[in-house]
């Protein structure tokens, strides 16, 4: 994770992290895990801080998150998660989702995010895929 962050930062790309309150298994758990991965804490933004930034972002990269990025929570009253606050990743110019397969997440809810025209699905193991991207970033240019 830190390698991806470093590789992108080196290229002058501004990298931030958008953290949903229930990411991880206890309140604030994700922040601790990212801090452990040596990501500086001023790049970790909570949901309220990061959501206004998505429309200006070129890429939203979703790694291993599902329901908390599901736009159905905003738009589809019949969805079981309707009304749940989410990360507005779908408002970014390009959305990338790293995911093992199309299978629905823990709550078993289909995610319309994956069918958007500007969404790219990156199928594979998160760790391997991030490693591949980092290698490509290092190799190219």
């Amino acid at each position: 994770m830190l390698e991806l962050y470093d590789a992108l930062s080196k290229k002058g790309v501004e990298v931030k992290f958008g953290i949903h309150p229930v990411a991880g298994r206890m309140p604030g758990h994700m922040n601790v895990l990212l801090a452990e991965a040596d990501i500086p804490y001023d790049k970790l933004l909570d949901m309220d801080a990061v959501n206004p930034e998505f429309p200006q972002a070129d890429v939203a990269l979703v790694i291993g998150a599902n329901d908390v990025t599901n736009p159905a929570a905003r738009s589809d009253p019949s969805s079981p998660i309707y009304g749940m606050p989410i990360l507005d990743v779908d408002k970014a110019r390009t959305v990338m989702v790293i995911k093992r397969s199309m299978s629905p997440g823990f709550a078993g809810i289909d995610n319309p995010l994956y069918y958007l025209d500007r969404t790219m699905m990156l199928f594979g193991d998160a760790k391997v895929f991030v490693g591949d991207i980092v290698r490509e970033l290092g190799a190219g240019h």
Partner: peptide, 10 residues
Amino acid sequence: VSPLLHTPLM
């Protein structure tokens, strides 16, 4: 307390 630190808070 910043949401960043909710786990240490607990």
